[in-house]
């Protein structure tokens, strides 16, 4: 097997073709999960009849059973209902912060790659500095700056994630800076602004989309780890990270309060990564 593979001539199917069988299953599952997630975010009442904030002290700490498939928390609130209602804020945080991160990254990478050698050096330094400053520490300081809540969380995670994407985009822009189509546009007399909006951004769109799809899961994890530390929405909120943090105090007697929000976060991460990887294989023409 490996001997035939190591021959210089290999007959691999082109990456543009449909995926082999085993990857189909993963992709289908990811699509299914994301559909449910989006449904939960748009119309949570469709998936549950309960109230995420309805307290029932008598039913506190009920283990998973028929009535409460995922159990109840310390105030008797149904975990399934709370998870469904938490989908919206998680998706908003994930998508919002990835959009912010990509915008910040673009606004650093474009002047860096096309603004002359001085700007290029400056942007390189900015990236170096932002990298030495751990992302989570940056987010920590930013959340301290804005107090806690959903919006500050988006800003903190978005700015924290920006240098990673910025460096990636910067590298890509540097390689296409002298590409044929840019030179052609320049020799046709297009202004830099025109080249930027008509040629560069449309060309960068696909890698941006892929990076965004791959990144949503990661930003959801970052956001939930910040709200786990108490920097997100305050406790009664039906937010996955906050719910997980609350369960930490009862871990010895009621594992389900912590376990299921974590499962939701992990599944979201896996689903978005699978989707992102599919997009990457399908649309990115890599030469290996």
């Amino acid at each position: 097997m490996s001997a035939t593979n190591s021959l210089p001539l290999s007959l691999k199917p082109s990456p543009r073709l449909w995926l082999p069988g085993s990857q189909h299953i993963g992709l289908t599952l990811a699509f299914l999960y994301l559909t449910i997630l989006i449904l939960a975010a748009i119309a949570p009442h469709f998936l549950t009849h309960g109230n995420p904030y309805g307290i029932a002290p008598r039913e506190a700490f009920t283990a998973p059973c028929w009535q409460h498939p995922l159990g109840t928390d310390q105030s008797g609130r149904d975990m399934w209902t709370r998870l469904i209602f938490g989908a919206r804020s998680s998706l908003v945080i994930g998508i919002g912060s990835i959009l912010l991160a990509l915008c910040v990254a673009l606004s650093l990478a474009i002047p860096g790659a096309f603004g002359g050698p001085f700007a290029e050096q400056c942007v390189k330094w900015v990236f170096e500095i932002l990298f030495s400053f751990p992302t989570v520490v940056l987010a920590l300081l930013l959340t301290a700056l804005f107090s806690s809540g959903t919006f500050p969380l988006i800003v903190a995670v978005g700015i924290g994630a920006a240098p990673g994407y910025g460096r990636m985009l910067f590298g890509q822009f540097l390689t296409i800076r002298h590409a044929g189509f840019i030179e052609a546009a320049r020799s046709l007399g297009h202004s830099p602004a025109q080249i930027l909006t008509r040629h560069l951004i449309p060309n960068a769109f696909r890698p941006l989309l892929i990076a965004g799809a791959m990144g949503i899961g990661q930003t959801i994890i970052w956001a939930s780890s910040l709200s786990f530390l108490g920097l997100g929405a305050p406790p009664p909120a039906a937010e996955w990270g906050t719910m997980l943090a609350m369960g930490r105090d009862y871990i010895a007697e009621a594992w389900w309060i912590t376990f299921f929000p974590g499962v939701a976060i992990v599944l979201t991460m896996l689903a978005t990564t699978t989707l992102g990887r599919f997009l990457k294989n399908r649309f990115e023409t890599t030469t290996s």
Partner: peptide, 16 residues
Amino acid sequence: FFAGLPQFWIGIILLW
């Protein structure tokens, strides 16, 4: 799967 696990969650599960 491993790469997608949040550290704080694994921490709690291991603790439990």
